[in-house]
Amino acid sequence: MRRLRTAFQVLVVAAVAVTGVRHALGWSMTTIEKYCPFGGLETAYALVTRQKFTCAAGELNLALFLALILLTLLARKAFCGWVCPLGAVLEWWGRLGRRWLRFSSFDGWWRPSDRTRKVLQTVLRSVVLAAVLAATWATGELVFRGYDPYYILFSAHGHDVMFWSYFILGGLLALGLAMPMAWCKYLCPLGAALWPASKPGLLRLRRSPDHCTECGACDDACPQSLPVSSVMEVRSGECTLCFECTAACPVAGALELRAPGGKP
């Protein structure tokens, strides 16, 4: 499953990078924004109030956002772990940071309590989401572009990317070394928008106390730093169903994917 997920990530990253470069070179009119589901959320207000899309956002953004909500209701934040190209790059970067700086887990240099992490995630990401949506809806422009690490990274110096945009990207990469996947965990506005759909998500990982040795390997392997070994079921809205925990688990059958209903 790890190889399959990596293949998904590599394919998406390559496709987005090629799209960005082709557009920058003038070989194609397709921009990387065209397939961004967050654009669907950004344009939703304009569509409801003015029956028009915002700026360069269009029907594909909206359709992909609606499909993403459906996916999240079924498989939690599988998008983040399997599809998001920025999430993939930051995960690979975070792994590099873990190896270089010899961190035992994806927490990095700072290991907050579960409660502190939840509060920080909720507050910081909600603030970013509210600011982006308020600015977009007030101006009718995709004002987040110049600050959006996804756009800065993959657009090959696209429209609205300024020199200071690279400082933002550089800062996030530096932060991502010390605190792997800090953007995804604490700042991503799409992550905040998906949380209400992800929390009641249908699929979840269940830990079998009969098999589990409580070695904690799953906790260290989780890119989202979830305390897998201390819960019976991973019901967190942050779980990306990446199966890193099941791959790290030394006992077969200790962690399994479950859906409600049927035999326990």
């Binding site: 594909l60 359709a63 992909l64 459906l70 996916l71 199966f243 994917l257 049927g262």
Partner: peptide
């Protein structure tokens, strides 16, 4: 109910196809 892990990538592909096809 136990679910095979490949359900997750399958759902990802199905939802992506739904989004791409539903845009029209």
């Amino acid at each position: 109910m136990r679910v095979p892990p490949w359900t997750v990538p399958l759902l990802v592909l199905l939802c992506a196809a739904l989004g791409l096809a539903g845009a029209r």
